[in-house]
Each structure stands twice: as structure tokens, then as C-alpha cells.
Design a protein around this nucleic acid. Structure first.
Lengths: 188, 188
DNA sequence: TTGTTACCAAACAATTTGTTTTGTTTCTGT
DNA sequence: ACAGAAACAAAACAAATTGTTTGGTAACAA
């Protein structure tokens, strides 16, 4: 990719991230992003059709990376019953979050956290589906498969949200323990 | 309250609801609401400071009522282990939703459902806290109390979301069964 | 009936949005 | 190094939105 394109794209993402950590998405105008990124008006619109698409692209960069690396992990070792929490993909995700790649923590704890947690959940579902794909589906005769997957995803995202709202006082291992405590009985 | 005030307030809520069922909140302008409600510009702003406050008031009307009636219910009978799902406050909430009071279903299934589910969850937390208050807190030595409450709330909201996304094919009783199946083991 | 309150229409300045136009700078391939 | 292509910028643009003000009308309540 052209060095210039990359530079402006990064400048826009950076400015947008700074603004998102300070005020609500709805209150951010394209003009502000342009001013903070210090680029021409025309340039912005040649990169992103609307503010919504900018958000979408940012989220894909943020979560795409996290989920992709987790996808590469060995599957089927995320049960208490299969050993310890140390094997969990979920533990891996929490550690990744803790590294604060691309200031993702500032976004997840801002007043815009709903937006990002939502994206997080939708990407997480795909990850969980592939994890289950190898292992076979969770054998719970009374509950629909997609209901279970949705439940596990939203439980994990809620766990992350709770953790962040407590300033990540606990270790990723502890949090993984909490999460498995509420979900493992279902799929063991 | 003045008959005129009530009328315009209702007209604004009605217009807003119609718009919310068709397009995204961010894409709705105050002007559109004014036009559809067929009121004067000044009138709108004398009722609601901003679009955000309008949303807030609408949500309070929608969920305040639902939660309040649930608050009045007898507590502590929502375990499988304490009997059947028939006693559950959660079953009551689902039945209430099914009645589609104030077209709440159209809002919960629109592209704005995140917004309303979020409000739903925050109100639900209060309800669950009071439910537990009588019964004593869920006795789970390893998990923090507020983590459990958050988990139960988000699980229920996620259950509702899943139900709605399946066009409410299942009965409220079945759905309550699903929900208790994933949460009851934790608090029994 | 009289005073108060809610409403409405019209106009307003300020801001935002997305596009166009006209150049300038930077990259790329030969 | 040179020429064409691509990215960028500055300025101007119409159109729409926002929130407020002004002046006047209709409905309510005592």
C-alpha cells in the first residue's frame, strides 16, 4: 500500500481513537476527525464513505487481529474438566487484551464501550463456532446449539466488561476461572 | 398534566417509535420527528432538550413499567430447585413482553435493539438485586456477588434477544426453561 | 372572564455534510 | 531521471440540521 495512504489512514484512526476515548460516538463530527488528524477534507472522504464505515474498519482492525491469532490456537482445551484454565482460549484472549494493543482498553472502557463490546461479541461467536467444530458440538440435549453459542459469547463479553469496570484488578487467570465457573457446567 | 402536553408528548413518542422501527437512531433527525409528529419546532424543544433525552424518557416509560410490575411479584420462587419454572419472575417478564405493550417488540427487534436491550439489562439488574435481597445472596463462595448479578442479567437479556431473533417461535415457558438451565446451576 | 400556559410559524446564525474544482506533491515504472 | 498516475490539499458550494428568538394564537384553569 502507498506510504501516503497508510500514513493518512493511520492518522485518521489515531484521531478517531483519541476522540472516541473522550466523547460519545454520536457527538463526534467528521470535521473534528479531519481537524485532529490534520488532513484535507477531500482526503477523508476518499478513504471512508461515512463515519460509520470508519468505525467498522477500525473495529475490524482491532478485533480481527485478536480473533485471528486465537483462531490459530489448538482447539478443544478450554474446559476445566479437560485440565486447568491455563489451556483456555479465553485466557489467551484476556492476556491479549491486557497487552492493550492499539489502545483497545481505552476504547473498551470509554463511554463507547457498548459499541466495541458488541463487535467483540459478534466476532467471538465465529471463534467459538470453530472451536466447537473440532470438538463436536456441546452435548446438551435440551438446549439449541445456537442458543448455547450465543450464551457463551455474551457471557464472556459480559465477563470482560465486568473485569474492565473493576479496573482489571484480578489476573487473567482468575477471570478465566470465573468465566469457566459459570459456563463449564453447561458444556462439560 | 395538561391535556395538550400529554397529547404532544404522545405524538412525539409515537413518531419516534415509528422512526426507530424503520431506521437507525443515529440517522433520525429531530426534524423528521417534528414533521412526523406534526408539531411545532419550538414545541419539541420545550418538551425534550435533545434527541438523547427523548430516548431516555421513552426507555424509562417502556421498561420502568415492566420492571415495576415485576418488582411487586413475590420473591424467591424462581429456581427449578424450588419448584417449576411457572413461578419464575423471568417467565412473568417474558409473558409481559409477549403482550407487546407500547410496541416494545418492534423496538427490540429493530436495528436499534442494542440500545433497548442495554436499557433492559440495566433495569433488570436492579430487579435481580431486590429479588436476591429477600432471599439472601446467591451462595457461591468463589464468585463475587456483583459478577454473578451481572452474569444473570446479561444472560437473561441475551436469552430474550435470541428468542426475538427466532421470531418468538418458542413459548415463554420453554424460554424460561432454557434460561434457568444455563443459570440455575450457579445459584442453586 | 382573566391570567396563565402551551402551542405554532417564521426567521436566524452556526455547524455539518458530501461534492466539486483546481491545483500541488509524492510515488511508480521504465 | 523522467513521465504518467495517484494521493493529497485548499477553497468554495448547496443542502440539511440544530437550537434559539420573536410575536402571535388557541386552550386551559381559577
Amino acid at each position: 500500500m502507498d506510504r501516503r495512504q497508510k500514513k493518512t489512514r493511520e492518522a485518521i484512526f489515531k484521531a478517531f481513537t483519541v476522540l472516541l476515548s473522550k466523547k460519545h460516538y454520536n457527538q463526534i463530527s467528521v470535521q473534528e476527525i479531519i481537524d485532529l488528524a490534520d488532513i484535507g477534507r477531500t482526503t477523508f472522504y476518499s478513504h471512508f464513505e461515512t463515519k460509520d464505515y470508519l468505525l467498522k474498519d477500525l473495529c475490524e482492525e482491532l478485533f480481527g487481529h485478536i480473533i485471528d491469532t486465537a483462531m490459530g490456537l489448538p482447539h478443544g482445551h478450554y474446559h476445566y474438566s479437560c485440565g486447568t484454565a491455563a489451556d483456555s482460549v479465553f485466557l489467551h484472549l484476556l492476556r491479549h487484551l491486557q497487552e492493550n494493543d492499539r489502545n483497545i482498553l481505552e476504547l473498551l472502557t470509554s463511554q463507547n464501550n457498548e459499541i466495541f463490546l458488541r463487535y467483540f461479541k459478534s466476532n467471538l461467536k465465529k471463534l467459538i463456532v470453530t472451536q466447537y467444530a473440532d470438538k463436536g458440538l456441546p452435548d446438551n440435549s435440551t438446549l439449541p446449539r445456537d442458543y448455547l453459542i450465543s450464551h457463551i459469547s455474551s457471557s464472556f463479553v459480559d465477563t470482560v466488561d465486568w473485569w474492565l469496570s473493576h479496573n482489571m484488578k484480578e489476573s487473567p487467570e482468575e477471570i478465566t476461572g470465573y468465566f469457566l465457573a459459570v459456563t463449564d457446567p453447561l458444556i462439560g
